[in-house]
């Protein structure tokens, strides 16, 4: 017993001495930085993505983790693997753990409707990324899907419409048709094409986000419409298949493929460079990761504000990538993001 006490006393005095020496070289404080670091330290952020293991969520996570590590807070992930039910359980689990900020990546617009207010009433601030539930949280970070659809449609009008000298025949190879982003995007397509009657949509098919289906659908469409001018895709992963069919048919010069996605190098720039995609709208995951970090840090610093007091949104600026403006920085890779993202 005695020995133990002695050791404890020694340790305490050593700690005191260390603390004193640490205090003697206090870093420069510009008036905000000290409290900035102080407030963020030890905070807890929770993140429920749709699923880990695909470029968007891995990219965001890389950014989040880098910043959290640098500033001394934690980001915990629970991975529901595309399952709504599992996602709801994961969110409920997090609410019970009471983190400071909860980041949600909704699969649809309703599932989290009750959960967002529930989390806020527990004092947790909620950020939604890339798709919004009907209920607003404290922040939204992500693309404006209507704008995305609108710009993609305008791009194909530019390539096939009145001023291009082409016949205006296009096909749409869309994703799982009931997904909200697809629904919103389709509304934008319709609005644009309503203003451009010269555009003729010869086929509109869903490929269910499956590149293999996209390929077979596209190859059939191309057989039927050998004079097709353009194809409108909705997600790079699936459009890979569309592009493969176009390439196989040897119609890469004729058919203008517009795609969109998070701007991963392998999915986007490589394909633009090879000519598989003629135009690509990116919502730029590194930028989103930075926005996400900004939102997290803002909410963590607003310690005296109740959740829901000042909701804000950070819509992602969309970036058009074509062969002409392609540069080494147009796209990103996960390795880069893991090193320096956020």
């Amino acid at each position: 017993m005695k020995a133990m006490r002695l050791i404890a006393a020694l340790a305490a005095s050593a700690a005191l001495a260390l603390g004193a020496s640490g205090a003697s070289s206090e870093p420069y404080n510009d008036g905000q930085s000290a409290s900035y670091y102080e407030v963020l330290k030890g905070k807890r952020v929770a993140f429920v993505p749709l699923s880990m293991g695909f470029d968007l969520t891995e990219g965001w996570n890389a950014g989040l983790q880098n910043q959290a590590e640098a500033l001394g807070y934690t980001v915990d992930i629970r991975d529901p693997n595309w399952n709504v039910e599992a996602a709801v359980q994961a969110v409920n689990g997090f609410i019970a753990d009471k983190p400071d900020v909860l980041i949600l990546h909704p699969l649809d617009q309703q599932a989290y409707n009750r959960l967002v207010p529930k989390a806020q009433s527990e004092g947790i601030k909620v950020i939604q990324i890339n798709l919004k539930s009907i209920t607003n949280g404290d922040a939204y970070v992500g693309a404006d899907w209507y704008e995305m659809g609108y710009k993609q449609a305008e791009e194909i009008v530019r390539a096939c419409g009145k001023d291009s000298g082409n016949n205006g025949k296009i096909a749409i190879v869309t994703g799982q048709a009931s997904t909200p982003t697809i629904v919103i995007g389709n509304m934008a397509f319709d609005d644009v094409f309503a203003q451009h009657p010269e555009i003729e949509v010869v086929a509109k098919q869903s490929a269910d986000f499956d590149p293999a289906k996209a390929k077979s659908v596209t190859s059939t469409i191309l057989k039927q419409n050998p004079d097709l001018c353009g194809i409108l895709g909705v997600w790079d992963g699936q459009d890979q298949g569309t592009a493969a069919a176009v390439r196989e048919a040897g119609m890469q010069d004729q058919v203008y493929v517009v795609s969109s996605g998070g701007g991963n190098k392998a999915a986007a720039c490589d394909n633009v460079e090879s000519g598989d995609f003629d135009a690509y709208y990116s919502y730029d995951v590194p930028g989103q990761a930075r926005d996400l970090n900004a939102a997290v840090k803002i909410l963590l610093q607003q310690t005296d504000m109740e959740p829901g007091a000042a909701p804000f949104a950070l819509y992602t600026p969309l970036k058009l990538i074509t062969k002409d403006n392609l540069s080494p920085t147009s796209c990103w890779t996960l390795e880069e993001l893991q090193v320096s993202g956020g």
Binding site: N81, W82, D208, F209, D210, P211, A212, K215, G237, Q240, G241, A244, A266
Partner: peptide
């Protein structure tokens, strides 16, 4: 599949 689509997605397993 992979060579035809110049890539493959393991999510097919969930379909």
């Amino acid at each position: 599949t992979a060579t035809a689509l110049s890539g493959i997605n393991t999510r097919v397993a969930l379909s």
